[in-house]
C-alpha cells in the first residue's frame, strides 16, 4: 500500500457493513430505533481486526475525515448522554466504535494534525470512563484493558505532538496539548519516564497553568510529600482530578503505613477529623472502614485512631479505586460532551 487510500463513505457505517449486519441481525442496542427491537436506527461501523484473508478495504468502506469527526462527535455526545442503559453498556459500545475510528486513522495514514483531532477525544473518553467505571465488577469493566488502550492512545498522541512545532499551534491546540500531557503525567504518576518527559517539554506547554499544576503534583509525589499531592489533586480540573484520584487508595495506604510508624503508641490517639481531612474522606465511616481493612485500631468513640506499627497489615493488597466525592462534584458542574470533545477545558 504505497499510496494513501482515502475514504469516500459519508455514513457512520459503510453500506456493505450495514446491509450485512441488518440482514444477519447483528445490531447493537444503540443501533436500533428507539423502543423497537427489530427496526434499524443509526448504525456505526464496528471494529474488526485486520487479518489475513480479509480483503483490503475499498474506498467506499472507509469514511471521510469529516465523517470520522462526526462519528466521534455522535458517540461522545448522543450516545454518552443516553441514559437508557448503565454506563458500562455505553462504554462497551463507544469503546468498540472508537476503536474502528482509530483503525481508519492508521489505514488512511492521517498526518499528525488529522490524527490528533480524532485521537484527543478518545483519550478524554477513555480517561473519563476509567474513573467512572472504577467501581464496576470485572465482568462489566476490565480496568486493565482500559488502561492499556488509554496508555496506547496517549503515547500515540504524544508522538504526534512531538512531530508538530509547538510554535505553530494556536491557543486552543496548545491548551489541548497541555491537557493531554497532564493526563499522561498523572496517569503515570510516580514513573520516572513520565517525569523525564515532563522535564523536556517546550516551555509553552510546561508553563501552562493546567500542566504546571499537574507537574507540581508529580514532583511532590516524587519527593514523597503526599500532603501536597493530596491537596493538589483536589484543585485539578474534572478529568485530571479523576485520573489523579485513581492513585488515592495507594496514597492512603502509604499514609497509613507512615503514620503507623510516626504515631506509633499504645496510649496516644489521632483524631479521625485530622485524618479524614488529610486523606480526602467525605464520610468518617469510609475512613473507619479503610482503617479496619488495614487492621488499624479504632477507638470506641469512633473519633480517634490508634496507630501501632505492629498492627498494620502490610501484606494486604491496596484497596480498589473508588469514586471520590470531590471529583463527582466537579462533573456535576460540567456538560460532559463539551469536555470529552475538548470544546471547553
Amino acid at each position: 500500500m504505497s499510496n494513501n487510500i482515502k475514504g469516500t463513505c459519508e455514513q457512520f457505517c459503510p453500506e456493505a457493513e450495514s446491509k450485512l449486519r441488518i440482514k444477519e441481525k447483528l445490531l447493537h442496542y444503540y443501533e436500533l430505533k428507539n423502543g423497537e427491537r427489530t427496526v434499524p436506527g443509526l448504525l456505526v461501523k464496528a471494529f474488526a481486526r485486520s487479518a489475513a484473508g480479509v480483503k483490503a478495504p475499498r474506498t467506499k468502506d472507509l469514511r471521510t475525515e469529516r465523517c470520522l469527526q462526526k462519528t466521534v462527535e455522535y458517540l461522545l455526545k448522543d450516545i454518552v448522554l443516553d441514559k437508557r442503559r448503565p454506563y458500562n453498556f455505553v462504554y462497551d459500545f463507544v469503546f468498540d466504535r472508537l476503536r474502528a475510528v482509530r483503525q481508519e486513522i492508521v489505514m488512511q495514514r492521517y498526518d499528525e494534525k488529522q490524527t490528533l483531532k480524532l485521537l484527543e477525544p478518545m483519550v478524554m473518553f477513555l480517561a473519563y470512563s476509567r474513573y467512572r467505571l472504577c467501581e464496576e465488577q470485572i465482568d462489566n469493566f476490565d480496568p486493565k484493558i482500559c488502561n492499556q488502550h488509554l496508555q496506547e492512545c496517549l503515547k500515540r498522541a504524544l508522538c504526534c505532538y512531538d512531530e508538530i512545532d509547538v510554535q505553530s499551534l494556536n491557543l486552543n491546540e496548545l491548551n489541548r496539548r497541555s491537557f493531554l500531557e497532564a493526563i499522561y503525567l498523572l496517569f503515570n504518576l510516580g514513573t520516572s519516564e513520565a517525569l523525564n518527559r515532563a522535564l523536556g517539554l517546550p516551555s509553552e506547554v510546561s508553563k501552562s497553568e493546567v500542566f504546571a499544576s499537574a507537574f507540581q503534583i508529580a514532583i511532590h509525589y516524587h519527593q514523597g510529600n503526599f500532603y501536597r499531592v493530596l491537596v493538589g489533586i483536589q484543585k485539578l480540573p474534572h478529568i485530571l482530578s479523576a485520573i489523579a484520584s485513581l492513585n488515592l487508595q495507594k496514597l492512603r495506604s502509604k499514609v497509613y503505613l507512615v503514620f503507623a510508624h510516626a504515631y506509633n503508641s499504645k496510649q496516644l490517639m489521632v483524631p479521625t477529623s485530622f485524618l479524614s481531612r488529610l486523606l480526602l474522606y467525605e464520610e468518617v465511616a469510609d475512613l473507619l472502614a479503610d482503617c479496619k481493612y488495614y487492621n488499624i485500631k479504632i477507638c470506641d468513640d469512633n473519633k480517634n485512631i490508634q496507630f501501632m506499627k505492629s498492627d498494620f497489615n502490610t501484606n494486604i493488597a491496596v484497596m480498589k479505586e473508588k469514586h471520590e466525592c470531590f471529583v463527582d462534584k466537579k462533573f456535576e458542574k460540567v456538560y460532559l460532551p463539551e469536555i470529552l470533545l475538548l470544546k471547553r477545558l
Partner: peptide
C-alpha cells in the same frame, strides 16, 4: 505533621509524634 511523620518513617528522625 506529614513531613515529620515521613522523616520518622524513613528512619531519619528517631521518635514519635503525639497528635494531641
Amino acid at each position: 505533621h506529614c513531613i515529620v511523620a515521613n522523616l520518622i518513617f524513613e528512619g531519619k528522625i528517631k521518635g514519635y509524634i503525639s497528635y494531641s
